[in-house]
């Protein structure tokens, strides 16, 4: 059973009102520093940030930024971001209009007693085992931030070696109108 989709935008990984900015940038040296620097000097808070090439030509990258919409008015964040010459396009998505996903990778120590419990947790969360050895299991979950939160809480019962999350990426829900462009 999948965990229900969150609609409030409030999850344990971003506990206050957040907003998602999907920012298309020129894939040029220093562009991430420009964006991070802008957020730092203007006092805008970033909850998570994911970057990847946006097309085959390597000319553009897509940066998905989850911003704390209470640290500054969204209009200001968008307005200042838009002034960066390397920023090509900004789409903002309110949490309820967004289809958000992120990837969780975790390596958990297991023994004879805990192995089955870990496997149960994996199954329940619709996660997958991607690597194993005698003493540990590496699992992954591609899911909503809330599902990742829930699995993360469950895994706290076990001896974790490492847990990484990518930060989220998002697209507009097909069932709702895309927001301002």
């Amino acid at each position: 059973m999948a965990v229900p989709e969150p609609y409030t935008g409030v999850t344990s990984s971003s506990p206050v009102r957040h907003h998602i900015l999907s920012v298309l940038v020129e894939n040029k040296a220093g562009v991430l520093a420009r964006i991070a620097g802008l957020f730092a000097r203007r006092g805008f808070n970033i909850y998570s940030l994911a970057v990847a090439p946006a097309d085959d030509s390597q000319r553009f990258s897509r940066i998905t930024i989850v911003v704390d919409a209470e640290s500054a008015p969204l209009e200001q964040i968008r307005g200042q971001l838009n002034k960066l010459i390397n920023v090509v396009e900004i789409k903002d998505l309110a949490p309820k209009e967004a289809l958000e996903r992120e990837l969780l990778l975790a390596t958990v120590e297991v023994d004879e007693e805990t192995r089955q419990a870990v496997l149960d947790a994996v199954a329940q969360a619709n996660a997958a085992i991607v690597d194993v050895n005698d003493t540990s299991v590496t699992l992954m979950l591609a899911g909503t931030p809330a599902a990742c939160d829930a699995l993360e809480r469950q895994l706290e019962a076990f001896a974790q070696i490492e847990l990484h999350r990518t930060g989220r990426v998002a697209l507009p829900r097909l069932s709702s109108e895309p927001t301002r462009n």
Binding site: A29, G30, A33, R34, G37, R41, I85
Partner: peptide, 14 residues
């Protein structure tokens, strides 16, 4: 200098 002036230029190029 491009790093130093990122926040005080409209844009800069290396």
């Amino acid at each position: 200098i491009t790093g130093i002036t990122m926040g005080i230029t409209k844009h800069n190029f290396l």
